[in-house]
Each structure stands twice: as C-alpha cells, then as structure tokens.
Amino acid sequence: MNHFKRGILIGCCVLAAMMAAAQQRPHMYYSDSGVTAKPVAKDPKVIFFKGRYLMYYSVPGSDNKNWSIGIAESHDLTNWKKAGTIEPGADYEKNGLCAPGALVKDGRVNLFYQTYGNGKSDAICHAVSEDGIHFTRNSTNPIFRPTGSWTCGRAIDAEVVAFKNRYFLYFATRDPDYKVQMQGVAATASMNTSFNREEWTQLTDSAILKPELPWEKNCIEAATCIQQGRYLYMFYAGGYNNEPQQIGLARSTDGIRWQRLSAQPFLPNGKPGTWNESESGHPDIFKAPNQHYYLFFQGNKDKGRSWYLSKKEVLFKRGWMLKGN
C-alpha cells in the first residue's frame, strides 16, 4: 500500500472514531475545565431567572479539594456558558461548599448548599441573590443539620420545594456508623419564611427513604422533587458514586411518607462504552417555562476521573416516562 492510500485509510479510521464518539455523547454535554486540568462538573440544579436559564453545580479546586459552586447560563437548555463561581467565603465554608439547590422566591434566587470536607459536621447553608450570580450569605448559617439517634448529624444535598403551603427541605444524611446514606426531611411552618435556622423543624426522627433495593446498595441521596396533582414526586440517586449510581423515583401525598414507583431504576447508567457507563446520578427535575420537563443528571465513563452534566426530556402522562424511550 502506498503512502497516499495509507494516509486515506488512517484519515477514514480517525474520522470514523470521531463520529462514533460524537454519537455516544448526548446533545447536552457540559463540564467545567477552568479550575482543574480535567473536566469536572457535578450536582446540577437548574432554574429560570430573569429571561435565561441558570445552572448551579459543584466543581473541585485544583487539588481536588476545596469545592466551590460553578454557575453556567443558557438560552436553550443545551448550550451552556460559564457565568460565575461561588467560592468559599465564610469561616464555616473554609473547607469548601457544594451540592447546590435553588429556587426563585420574591424575585430573588435562594441558594441552598452544603459545607464540604467536615465529615459528620457538614450542614446545609442558605444565600440569596438579586442577579443569580452574586450571593449574600444567611446570617444564621448553617441553617440546618439533623438530630436524633438515627443520624450522625450530617446534612448534605439540600432540596427545598413548596408543597402544602410550606417549604420542605429534603437532605441526605448517614447513620451513626457513617456507612448508610439516607433521606430526611424538615419543613417551615408556612410559605412566609426567610429560611433562617430557627424556622426549620425536623419532621421525623428517622429516615423517610433509605436503601432497600439491590441497586440502591448503601446509599440514597440527592433528592429532587416536583408536584403533579396531589402527589409530590421525588427523583433520587441510589448507590454511591460509580457503584454505579442510578436514578430512582418515588411519590408521596404528604411529603413525609414515600412509595417507590418501581423496583428498577428510572434512569440507569449507560451501557459499556457510552459516556455515562460509570453512572447516571445526582438528578434534578426541572419544568421549563414552555411546560416541558427535563431531568438533569451527572455522568461519566471513567470511574469519576471526569464528570459531565446532561439532560433527558421526560413526559408526565399519568406517570413519568423518558421521552423516546
């Protein structure tokens, strides 16, 4: 074979490999390589605020510690551009902050996040913003950590949602032996709240959802909720990162007692060779202004050496289903 033909053959092979890789990637495939040498973005939370979409996510520092919260913006929910970073500022955040939750109330963005790197002492904090980029911390931070013999006292992965004329705070915690991750819940007394520490009441002295199914292993975390009719639906992550982590679905009529809708994951990890082979995890359910629903999530194919954020459109017709699946 002459050099010309060999060059054509090599070029075709490279092109085929590039096309195959592109086909594996979803339309939305976002990560943050501005801090670390590798692309890493985790724990997505999406809102619509002042005419554009904002996505908050976790990103590590250069030493893979000292996590902060990245902010990206979009006008189509697919193409995202980084718009800012929330760095550790207060003393209680000195080891890092991450796992954002967010909602819009009274024309301001309310951000709920966890401290990081403090083990059993990690707790939920709150901040507010007029523009979605620059935040003022709540003076009562940390606003919540659980109590009781059922928990080690840690609270992470905050999700705050309005339901039945008050706000529910869902959080992940661990058992006293620090082995099993599970869901707990607190709530405010009414919708008229500043989300200060003294306004939260822990509603149960036990987990509201803990791992029971084989694929959930020893972890249920990262709850994200949305109301449909009289039900509050919870998408949650089962299994620790890359075990693989997969996404399950449960529902409740009171926000406290939950029933799984299937013994199988709603969104499993990808097949071997796909971009999310190692996991589909840490979900965020989002209703867009056009009334379409999207499930945002994190994934990777290299056991966590990189992390990307993506989404799938979901439909609700007497139940949730993945669009096109």
Results as ranks from 00 to 15, higher is better:
Gly89Cys: 03
Asp122Trp: 10
Asp106Asn: 09
Gly101Arg: 01
Gly89Arg: 12
Val104Pro: 00
Gly119Met: 14
Ile86Tyr: 01
Tyr116Arg: 09
Gly101Ser: 05
Ala99Trp: 06
Asn118Pro: 08
Tyr113Cys: 02
Asn79Ala: 15
Trp67Asp: 12
Ala99Thr: 12
Lys81Met: 08
Gly84Ser: 05
Leu111Arg: 00
Lys105Leu: 03
Asn95Phe: 09
His75Val: 09
His75Cys: 14
Tyr92His: 13
Gly89Asn: 10
Gly119Ile: 09
Asp76Cys: 15
Leu97Trp: 05
Asp76Ala: 08
Tyr116Phe: 15
Gly84Met: 03
Gly89Phe: 04
Cys98Leu: 08
Ser121Pro: 13
Lys81His: 08
Ala123Cys: 11
Lys105Glu: 03
Asp122Arg: 10
Arg108Trp: 01
Asn95Ala: 08
Gln114Asn: 13
Glu87Gly: 15
Thr115Lys: 03
Cys98Pro: 11
Gly119Pro: 10
Ala72Val: 09
Tyr116Cys: 09
Leu103Ala: 01
Ala83Gln: 05
Pro100Val: 04
Pro88Ala: 06
Pro100His: 05
Ser68Glu: 05
His75Lys: 15
Lys65Trp: 14
Ile69Gly: 00
Ile71Leu: 02
Asp76Ser: 15
Phe112Trp: 08
Gly96Glu: 02
Glu73Gly: 08
Gly70Phe: 04
Ala123Pro: 06
Thr115Gly: 07
Lys82Ile: 06
Asp76Glu: 10
Ala99Arg: 13
Ala83Leu: 04
Ser121Gly: 13
Asn95Thr: 14
Gly70Met: 04
Trp80Gly: 04
Gly119Gln: 10
Lys105Cys: 02
Ile69Ala: 00
Asn66Cys: 10
Asp106Arg: 06
Gly96Thr: 06
Thr78His: 15
Glu73Cys: 10
Val104Asp: 00
Ser68Pro: 10
Ala99Val: 11
Asn118Phe: 14
Tyr92Lys: 05
Lys82Ser: 08
Ile69His: 04
Val104Phe: 01
Lys94Cys: 11
Asn118Gln: 14
Lys81Tyr: 11
Asn79Cys: 13
Glu93Leu: 05
Ala72Ser: 07
Lys105Gln: 05
Asp106Phe: 02
Gly101Trp: 00
Asn66Asp: 09
Glu87Cys: 11
Gly117Tyr: 01
Pro88His: 05
Tyr113Asp: 00
Glu93Met: 07
Pro100Ser: 05
Gly119Trp: 04
Gly119Arg: 07
Pro100Glu: 02
Pro100Phe: 01
Gly101Ala: 09
Trp80Leu: 10
